[in-house]
């Protein structure tokens, strides 16, 4: 990717207002995660039995939970977990699914059918159901959850990369590289891999909110982040039985998840228009 195309991409992206709004959301969440220790008014784990379930006020803008912990501070710290878990899942999926897709598309033949059959098999078990069963089997916790979500959701990356490789393989410059006697490994890494990047970046951005939502769901169900970790899904679970008289405990973490997911979705949507015009619109 040279300087010229890069500046064209940036120009086209910044013209998309929705994408810019998304970028602001994402930047805000990233900053929150980095600065949580500075901006959070309280310790997210500090209990205060004199202030149980206090409704939102000047001292506690998002109220307190059933152990007197400040909800705002917990929501702010939660951004760290959301981003780290989301990134962990997406990177694992990209590596696992990407490598398999690259191999399937480049080698072809039996290897290709074998890999794609594997994708079909994993695909036919609902991701969340399998991730839940797997995370539970491995004993729960954040790392287990990251692995469980990644292991059940790499298939899309494989399909994407394989499709890219298959269409690239037929192009003239690849034939030319073969003709001048370039070794296969060089062709794969110098000519094929860089050209699959556009769609992979788009898909990675769009997979981020999916991973964040899935991890929140698993934590909510009890096999992800364990108490007292201030993870958003777990925070919503904390307030679940209290919505009748303490609506704030569940409501704010949910809004935080939505803003984060929305930011990544807006950015991904904008990136798709710029980086990959052929890529089918998901929404």
């Amino acid at each position: 990717m040279n300087q010229l195309t890069l500046s064209r991409i940036v120009r086209k992206f910044t013209r998309n207002r929705l994408a810019l709004v998304g970028l602001v959301f994402v930047a805000a969440v990233v900053l929150t995660a980095l600065l949580a220790g500075v901006i959070a008014p309280y310790d997210p784990l500090a209990m205060n039995f004199d202030a149980l379930l206090v409704s939102p006020s000047a001292t506690h803008p998002m109220g307190t939970d059933m152990l007197g912990r400040d909800v705002l501070s917990r929501v702010l710290y939660g951004s760290r977990y959301a981003l780290l878990i989301g990134m962990g899942v997406v990177v694992l999926q990209m590596v696992l699914g990407g490598i398999l897709g690259l191999i399937a598309g480049f080698v072809g033949g039996v290897v290709d059918s074998l890999v794609m059959r594997m994708v079909d098999i994993v695909w036919s078990i609902p991701g969340l159901v399998l991730a839940l069963a797997l995370a539970g089997a491995l004993g729960g916790g954040i790392w287990v959850m990251i692995i469980a979500i990644a292991v059940t959701g790499w298939g899309q990356f494989t399909r994407l990369v394989r499709g890219q490789v298959l269409s690239l393989r037929e192009l003239d410059y690849i034939t030319a590289a073969h003709a001048v006697g370039a070794p296969r490994r060089r062709i794969l890494f110098r000519h094929v891999l860089p050209n699959t990047l556009g769609p992979v970046i788009v898909y990675t951005t769009l997979e981020m909110p999916t991973a964040i939502l899935a991890s929140a769901a698993l934590s909510f169900l009890g096999v992800g982040a364990q108490p007292p970790t201030p993870e958003w899904g777990a925070l919503i679970a904390d307030g679940r039985g209290l919505v009748g008289f303490a609506w704030w405990v569940s409501t704010f973490p949910g809004l935080a998840i939505m803003i984060t997911a929305l930011g990544f979705n807006f950015v991904g949507d904008g990136l798709r228009d710029v980086l990959d015009p052929r890529f089918e619109r998901r929404v």
Binding site: L213, A217, V243, M258, L262
Partner: peptide
């Protein structure tokens, strides 16, 4: 409608359920 679609795909199901429960049930 594109904006609304992106809103809904960013919504956690379980949170929506709790919110509906809170408004209509409680």
């Amino acid at each position: 409608s594109r904006l609304i679609a992106l809103f809904w795909v960013s919504m956690p199901y379980f949170w929506l359920g709790i919110m509906l429960m809170m408004v209509f049930g409680l």
